[in-house]
Amino acid sequence: MKKLDLRPRLSARIMDGAMKVALWAVALGFIAALLVVMGAILKQGWPVLNWGFLSKMPETLDAGGGVRPQLFNSIYLVALSLAGSLPIGIGAGIYMAEYAKEGRLTGFFRLCVETLSATPSIVLALFGLMVFVQALDWSFSIRSGACALAMLNIPILTRVTELSLRGVPQEMKEASYGLGATKLQTILRVLLPAAAPGLLTGTVLAAGRAFGESAVLVFTAGTNTSMTYPDFSLKAPGETLAVHLWYVVSDGTLPDAREIAAGTAAVMVLVLLVMNIVVRLLDRRLKRHAR
């Protein structure tokens, strides 16, 4: 046997140290990026943010407008789209988790869910424009926007439902069947309650995504708002905060477009921060509760 010269290489040790430093740097870089983005948005929006900004109607040509109807539309649209997408999303999720048998057909369904969730929102926007705005002649309205937004939510909710149901321990299911429950009873009384934490966080996440969505809504809910407030009409135009932010900047007729955009962005970031905290608290509380 030949005795090899096997000695630890200093170069390996240097590489190890250097890479560890580099990896820390990359990670800290992303945290820094997050802080810079958040910081810049909040800093620029802060001077604009006050009660008046939130409670005033927008201006079309003059400075000093508010975002009251946009804020309302954002919340209204998210609620409507969830009302439309929750039954379908959860229904499909239940089907995928509890009814579908592994096979070609299920594989195909899964491909559809995957495809729909990966569809770029600008493509969904085109679809909404063609179908809701033009073919159904709903024009740029709350209902067009809500339907298009629901399409965005459905695949997310389907997947979340399927995953949460699959996460329920098998023994729970067996126990329920063992007591003579039907499949539906098992789903409604055992599986869904047990999967509730996942469903709830998933729903909040979908709401967050819908709240921030702009591309889909520019072409369906439109870039105008109703001049009455609050306008619950489904036919009213429904510009949201996200769309408003984009529109004032790219339209550029407002003298204070930048300020309005900065203020709107800050509002959105704050809302999302709150949602993030809510998800976290919900998650913790529900998990503790389930234990």
């Binding site: 948005i41 921030g212 996200a242 955009a261 962005a265 999302l272 921060l273 993030n276």
Partner: peptide, 23 residues
């Protein structure tokens, strides 16, 4: 890191847009 990634993915694209434009 998990928290940071959650927040980064949650920021809407128009907010990234205005950050890009203004900063």
């Amino acid at each position: 890191m998990r928290q940071a990634m959650d927040l980064l993915v949650g920021i809407p694209s128009v907010v990234y847009g205005i950050f890009g434009l203004a900063t």
